[in-house]
Protein backbone atom coordinates (compact mmCIF):
# COMPACT_ATOMS: atom_id res chain seq x y z
CA UNK A 1 0.00 0.00 0.00
CA UNK A 2 2.96 2.29 0.34
CA UNK A 3 5.73 2.53 -2.18
CA UNK A 4 9.03 3.49 -0.65
CA UNK A 5 12.52 3.22 -2.05
CA UNK A 6 16.04 3.41 -0.65
CA UNK A 7 17.83 6.69 -1.25
CA UNK A 8 21.22 7.88 -0.07
CA UNK A 9 21.51 11.19 1.78
CA UNK A 10 24.04 13.51 0.14
CA UNK A 11 23.30 16.78 1.91
CA UNK A 12 21.47 18.12 4.93
CA UNK A 13 20.01 21.57 4.40
CA UNK A 14 17.92 23.91 6.54
CA UNK A 15 14.53 23.20 8.19
CA UNK A 16 14.95 19.42 8.36
CA UNK A 17 15.31 19.21 4.61
CA UNK A 18 18.00 17.38 2.70
CA UNK A 19 19.12 16.12 -0.69
CA UNK A 20 19.05 12.44 -1.57
CA UNK A 21 20.47 10.62 -4.56
CA UNK A 22 18.11 8.32 -6.49
CA UNK A 23 20.01 6.25 -9.01
CA UNK A 24 22.25 9.18 -9.92
CA UNK A 25 19.55 11.85 -9.79
CA UNK A 26 19.18 14.22 -6.83
CA UNK A 27 15.97 15.32 -5.13
CA UNK A 28 15.13 17.53 -2.18
CA UNK A 29 13.22 15.70 0.55
CA UNK A 30 12.20 16.09 4.19
CA UNK A 31 14.41 14.55 6.87
CA UNK A 32 12.18 15.61 9.76
CA UNK A 33 11.38 12.02 10.76
CA UNK A 34 15.06 11.01 10.74
CA UNK A 35 16.86 13.97 12.36
CA UNK A 36 19.85 11.86 13.38
CA UNK A 37 20.59 10.87 9.77
CA UNK A 38 24.14 11.44 8.54
CA UNK A 39 25.44 12.16 5.07
CA UNK A 40 26.06 8.85 3.34
CA UNK A 41 23.26 7.07 5.21
CA UNK A 42 20.54 5.29 3.27
CA UNK A 43 16.97 6.22 4.08
CA UNK A 44 13.62 4.77 3.06
CA UNK A 45 11.79 7.42 1.07
CA UNK A 46 7.98 7.75 0.84
CA UNK A 47 6.19 10.79 -0.69
CA UNK A 48 9.36 12.87 -0.28
CA UNK A 49 9.73 12.07 3.42
CA UNK A 50 12.52 9.88 4.78
CA UNK A 51 10.53 7.53 7.01
CA UNK A 52 13.49 5.64 8.47
CA UNK A 53 17.24 5.22 8.25
CA UNK A 54 18.21 1.90 6.67
CA UNK A 55 20.76 -0.05 8.65
CA UNK A 56 23.08 -1.58 6.09
CA UNK A 57 24.37 -4.03 8.67
CA UNK A 58 20.86 -5.50 9.00
CA UNK A 59 20.56 -5.63 5.22
CA UNK A 60 23.80 -7.57 4.98
CA UNK A 61 22.66 -9.91 7.73
CA UNK A 62 19.44 -10.65 5.89
CA UNK A 63 21.36 -11.39 2.72
CA UNK A 64 23.85 -13.47 4.64
CA UNK A 65 21.09 -15.85 5.78
CA UNK A 66 20.60 -16.81 2.18
CA UNK A 67 24.19 -17.06 1.25
CA UNK A 68 24.87 -19.24 4.27
CA UNK A 69 27.67 -16.94 5.22
CA UNK A 70 27.59 -15.94 8.84
CA UNK A 71 26.89 -12.24 9.27
CA UNK A 72 29.86 -9.98 9.75
CA UNK A 73 29.80 -9.73 13.54
CA UNK A 74 29.74 -13.52 13.95
CA UNK A 75 32.63 -13.86 11.55
CA UNK A 76 34.61 -11.46 13.65
CA UNK A 77 33.88 -13.48 16.77
CA UNK A 78 35.33 -16.56 15.17
CA UNK A 79 38.48 -14.71 14.22
Amino acid sequence: MCLAIPAIVVKKTHNDMGIVCLGGVEKEISLMFTPEVRIGDWVMLHTDFAIQIITEEDARETLAIFQEIPPADQREEKI
Binding site: F33, M44, I51, Q52, I54, T55, T62
Partner: peptide
Protein backbone atom coordinates in the same frame (compact mmCIF):
# COMPACT_ATOMS: atom_id res chain seq x y z
CA UNK B 1 12.26 -9.78 8.80
CA UNK B 2 12.62 -6.16 7.67
CA UNK B 3 14.96 -5.09 10.43
CA UNK B 4 17.01 -3.01 8.00
CA UNK B 5 14.10 -0.56 7.94
CA UNK B 6 11.65 -1.44 10.73
CA UNK B 7 12.61 -0.74 14.36
CA UNK B 8 10.57 -2.56 17.00
CA UNK B 9 9.39 0.78 18.37
CA UNK B 10 8.60 2.30 14.96
CA UNK B 11 9.35 5.95 14.26
CA UNK B 12 8.46 7.94 17.38
CA UNK B 13 8.79 11.37 15.78
CA UNK B 14 6.31 10.39 13.09
CA UNK B 15 3.94 8.86 15.64
CA UNK B 16 4.09 12.00 17.81
CA UNK B 17 3.25 14.16 14.83
Amino acid sequence: EYSRVVRPEGNQIALDL
